[in-house]
Design a protein around this nucleic acid. Structure first.
Lengths: 207, 207, 207, 207
DNA sequence: AATGAATGAGAGTTCATTCAT
DNA sequence: TATGAATGAACTCTCATTCAT
């Protein structure tokens, strides 16, 4: 009677939210383990414990869940990046901060991220992307390109530069997650140095 | 009957070799066009003109053809790399040469490589690998690691270094293939500079 | 509370009646557009705006709505036919009047009737019946048979005669609805002449 | 060795022909019992005993089987009608002959035809057409229209005339099949008289 | 060996129907 | 009573793989 409903709190709404979340969670795992292409809607619902048809009450296709997951990731990462971009910092500061943010994000997500490297790379396949990662990459790329456009870094070939930075972040980040303990600062230092100074910089900066 | 077989070139052996090759060729095309995951054995045999069952006389699965293709690629790329490794060159020479070899290899293969990026990125999907590429990466990684191990470069963190180099090569190479004309020397210069000097080096080396 | 209910018109009863009617209307449309077989309960409720479960408070199945619709049609057509049957008219008068009544009924209903012949006969399918039509046929058949039984026409083979009349009415009526403008008198004249005089009668009666 | 192969006689070809036939037979039955719309591919293969996938080795869809069945029917009926049309007979001769041919065709097919009226009309549904019938109707219609166009009958309203004749044939034919014994000559006499002379002609011609 | 039809598991998806709210 | 999400059976169709020829 006197209840103030800040959010829908009926039992129905509750299970709806739960189910949506179950599906997203299951999807994250499945995409992680099998890769986007190999994953099937049925794999997702199986892991969910829900009935086959229930999936379609929430998402119309595998693509749609993927997109939802990507949105999730982007929503969490974008603000961090936006903050960095606003300040007009010189490139090295920006790079270090962005890499740090990215690696922290990766480490955060890493349970599911690890799930997808199930010991021994049984499939020859594809270095998968979690949907969140895909979104994050897009953001990073955008950020780096505009940083360059604003003259806060060498104006060599913005597209190649972005590509190179992403390549480093992706591969080093991947390796980072495979080590125990996961050492974000070390990986950040390495990747930043590599980006900023190349191999030459590594002896001094990282050794 | 009266044929003298210097090599296995009897009619049987000939068609056997031909068929095996047809399958590999078809597989290369199909993996290129559809991506590894989306490709099906049926797609491969359809393109082959052979009967469905015949496929299984040569390969037991899609994975196996993929592996065979990867071997192919590795067999062609490995000698180049081996040559470089033998000479005990300093790291910068080795890197430049390796990158060059790799990008030339990519450009060579690029017809099929391009085929599988069918303009507009209709799937959200995965940056696939041709099987050959996968093999090449393994080789490169090995080469770089041993170069480092032999002390011909900074002894920072060999695994991270390798990862970073591969990341740069992969992403920059990808971009290179998307430009017209495909400019291998320019991409090589960029990637080498980036690897060796990082962003700082780019202004001088590449501009 | 203080409402005097002459008929069940309480709020509850009102919406009950309304809902029942919505469902029937929606069903008529849907059967018309999709055909009986292709129509689904979901299609009907979707058009209704009601919740899925609500349908089942009124009808247990698609079949049951169909039957209800047929009853509707029969209820409207039966009195007309009953009027004709009571008078003991000779067969030709009866036939003309019945055909006229039937064609008028068809023309009346024809919006929905037309909807279900969506130009170009995309399905190979079946000449469907609206439920009302099915009911009407039953009535007509009964009327004709008893007219014959009462000796108001040639006693050849009542069942065949009925069948023939129904066949003519059905097919000619169908054609009538496909022409613009819909000319009920002309179609009635044709069908009556055909029934009464066969092809020979057509030159004189209809030309 | 010395065998002259009039037809493919390998075991494989044999089963292929058999399977194709099984599917057609099963489809005929299923369309008969359930109607075209309600019938599913699964219903057909279930009755066949073949594996699910096998269906698709022969036909790509329900539509395609239907079409094949219709072709069958048309192939058998068309020549008869063509023969009649060539001779330029007056309309009454043509009509009698065509009706006779049609009813004989129906009686022939009637095992399967009967199968689809499984005692008591459990579905409200559709007066189905076997695919063969659909094809036959198209032929008949064409024949009648051109007979009229050639002036071998009253020039009233060709489309209505055709419709009326088809209606009679369809409905009377249906009834004919429901009687035991099936009396094709009687039904032919009735329908012909009805078409040519209408109800008035029935007393004299048929009684 | 090569063939290609048969197989049946399994994918995506829709639907009638139930039932807690 | 109305609601609408959950259910799971059933449908269409494709695929990897086998095996008689």
């Amino acid at each position: 009677m006197s209840q103030v409903a800040y959010l829908p709190v009926g039992k129905r709404e509750q299970t709806k939210v739960q189910n949506r979340q179950s599906i997203l969670d299951a999807a994250r795992e499945v995409f992680g383990e099998l890769g986007y292409e190999a994953a099937t809607v049925r794999d997702i619902i199986r892991r969910t414990g829900l009935a086959a048809g229930t999936f379609y009450n929430y998402y119309r296709s595998k693509e749609e869940v993927f997109a939802a997951l990507a949105d999730d990731g982007a929503r969490r990462f974008a603000p961090i990046l936006k903050g960095l971009r606003g300040k007009g910092e010189p490139l090295d500061v920006f790079v270090r901060a962005a890499i740090k943010a990215y690696f922290e994000f990766m480490a955060d997500e890493h349970e599911s991220w690890m799930a997808r490297r199930p010991a021994g790379e049984q499939h020859p396949h594809v270095q998968g992307e979690t949907p969140e990662m895909a979104a994050v990459f897009a953001e990073v790329k955008d950020a780096i390109e505009s940083a360059i456009a604003e003259g806060r870094g060498p104006a060599s070939d913005p597209e190649y530069m972005t590509a190179a930075c992403i390549g480093i972040a992706r591969e080093v980040g991947d390796k980072m997650l495979m080590r125990r303990p996961i050492d974000v600062p070390a990986a950040t230092a390495f990747a930043s140095a590599m980006i900023l100074d190349g191999l030459r910089g590594l002896s001094e900066d990282c050794a």
